[in-house]
Design a protein around this nucleic acid. Structure first.
Lengths: 171, 171
DNA sequence: TGCTAATTTCATTTTTTTTTGAAAACTTTG
DNA sequence: CAAAGTTTTCAAAAAAAAATGAAATTAGCA
């Protein structure tokens, strides 16, 4: 089973603990998929999470057996979530990636980037509901108004609670 | 545009406010999809949410233009989330569905049913990580131990916070 | 500046998820 | 208990999402 260190001769630390790595990848693949992220994103983060050294993309590709495209795309996603960052390695032209492991920050970022924008458009949609209701004076108008009010409360609660969530995480 | 009441002659209240209905469906389709639910589930809930009367499945089918299979499957999902319930309508053999609108309860249920089971298996996976680490005495063992500890804290925090979340929703 | 390694992009393919629709399984009632 | 109405199930089709890989782009270095 040939698995030589592709460019740099640096692999000793990661060579062992294959089991750990596998469990980690498994763990994050599931975790990420709960958050609606594709498999490859979980795999990459899981690999980096237990890596003692920053890894260049081509090592991520060869170790995970995924394509260059997936790796590039996945790293882009992880970067935008601030879940990985690059670290400079002298004498190596490639970017080396490192997992960001402060979950509180990661979580806060996820909510801000992925959830809150939806809350905004939800509010607009509710506004449109009210507009479509105004001018109606049928007997059921009150029923609709109550339902709309519930949605408002829901989005209001969400809009306040979600950003506060990360702060509640007492890691 | 033929749209006769299929079996019962009861449609007056819903006939109007098509706009409201459309916005509602749109709203819940997006909301549900954020929670990983298929489109049809959001459509059904969105329709029922602004319906002044309980609706039988065949009306859900014809109003949304989805298949019987989707409707049956979607209602099953919504039932299991306690997001809809059936109400008895005298002289009608069909089940009539009603949206459950207490979001706090819905949310609590969602967390219990859809999220917590994953937390459990996450804990098992972390346990396996620790097992695979024991017996190693390489210099990097401490690094791994710290990472594992972080995961433990994460799942612990999640396991406590998530169930408490619904309680925090001050609707 | 020109050359090459590294990375990104994106049309295509593959995989996964969702929907459909028709058959099977119930259920009520005449 | 049969017939008609209702609901569920599930194999197949359709749609959506993700992965691939090769071409295009970018960036580092001589």
């Amino acid at each position: 089973m040939p698995h030589p260190s592709p460019t740099t001769g640096n692999q000793t630390a990661q060579e062992s603990n294959k089991d750990l790595e596998i469990e980690s990848i498994d763990f994050f693949v599931r975790m990420m998929s709960m958050l609606g992220m594709p498999r490859s994103v979980g795999e990459i983060y899981g690999l980096l999470y237990f890596s003692t050294t920053p890894l260049p993309m081509d090592q991520i590709v060869s170790r995970l057996g995924i394509s260059l495209g997936s790796a590039s795309q996945g790293l882009k996603t992880l970067r935008s979530l601030k879940a990985v960052r690059t670290s400079y390695v002298p004498g190596d032209r490639r970017d080396h990636y490192l997992a960001e492991t402060e979950f509180r920050r990661l979580f806060a970022n996820f909510i801000k980037e992925e959830i809150m924008p939806h809350m905004e458009s939800a509010k607009e949609r509710i506004q449109r509901m009210e507009d479509s209701l105004s001018g109606t004076d049928e007997p059921t108008a009150e029923f609709y108004q109550i339902r709309i009010e519930k949605l408002k409360k829901l989005t209001r609660a969400g809009g306040r609670l979600l950003p506060a969530l990360a702060g509640l995480l007492k890691f």
